[in-house]
Amino acid sequence: MLHSYLVLSALVFAIGFFGVLLRRNTLIIFMGLELMLVASTLALVAFSRFNGTIGGDIFVFFILTVAAAEVAVGLAIIVALFRKRQTIEVDELDSLKN
């Protein structure tokens, strides 16, 4: 049973990673990042459950909190970026290249 949870977690992580690599919309890339975080929390909870300890669960607590802070700051950055450049497509955000 632990295997199923871990494989599912790896699958969701890979899907999120695929989204981060593939998509050009910053918001969707951000959602892909969140998917990866959630997948890792699923693995932690599964390990914690089958190990009989509470350490993993506590760690998931902290991950959720940090993710909430990260989403707030990230979305604020995206909004500031959009105000300045009028776009959130990563292809058009290349001013550091030149």
Binding site: M1, L2, H3, L6, V45, S48, R49, F50, N51, G52, T53, I54, D57
Partner: peptide, 13 residues
């Protein structure tokens, strides 16, 4: 070891 852990103890969470 993962297969052995599956016969687990009670939930702590």
């Amino acid at each position: 070891k993962l297969a052995m852990a599956a016969a687990s103890t009670g939930a702590s969470g």
